[in-house]
Amino acid sequence: MKIPVLRIYTIGYLIFLYAPILLLPLFAFNDSKVIAFPLSGFTTQWFAQMWADEQMFNSFKNSLIVAGSASVLATTFGVFAARASTRYNFPGKAGILGLIMLPLVLPEMIVAMSLLVVLLAVGVPLSIFTIILGHVLICTPFAVAILTSAFQSLDRSLEEAAYDLGETAWSTFRLIILPLVMPGIISSLLIAFTISLDEFIIAFFLGGNETTLSVYIFGQFRFPAKVPAIMALGTVLVCLSICLLTIAEYFRRRGIAKTGAKDTGGFL
């Protein structure tokens, strides 16, 4: 029998990918202040400690506000750009879309620093609001990418048919286009939300005194005694992300099934 080298390799690679995540619950339930092997015993005290931390809840609340606003704004911007790019040709199209998609390949540090310099120069005080500004910038390319594929799979003649049957441009959008790209909109919202929730550099530099969850986690790493509670928090977050992603994947697949297109897989 042939040895399935590729399959074994791929499984090995998956282990590499999952290694840190698999360690997370181990340390979260480990009865020791030191994050190292051997494990010493089972405890749930780190979860209790995490739960008792008011600062954590505060930054979590901030994160939800930021991620919620950023995902809605980025998706709205994404709908405009994706619709324009799939439906129309206009002067400077490549340049404009290139600029919108630029944060995808720009180091976040550069985005954060250039924004910071301008915000300080203009005199905008740093707050949650400025984090949202930055996050919309980096989430929009993802939204555009997801929504472009959603709009692309839309047959142009569907719109014309609705128009031909007496609907106006707006009611065509509401009755035909919106329902058909809705799965794309939902997965764009979820993915932008996840990216914003996880984002650190912009939140760190543009947040002023306000901390998001990732900035809070970064701060806690300085205190070894706080690390086990972060492991507990990480475990909770991993479970949450997997739930969100599963929902996103579900909507994406449903969208594909609805329009009868072939499943090409993946978010990007």
């Binding site: 995540i21 996880d198 986690i217 972060i230 492991m231 991993v238 992300s241």
Partner: peptide
């Protein structure tokens, strides 16, 4: 893609 969507810092 799952591991990619879990906290980068952690």
């Amino acid at each position: 893609t799952i591991p990619f969507w879990t906290s980068y810092l952690i």
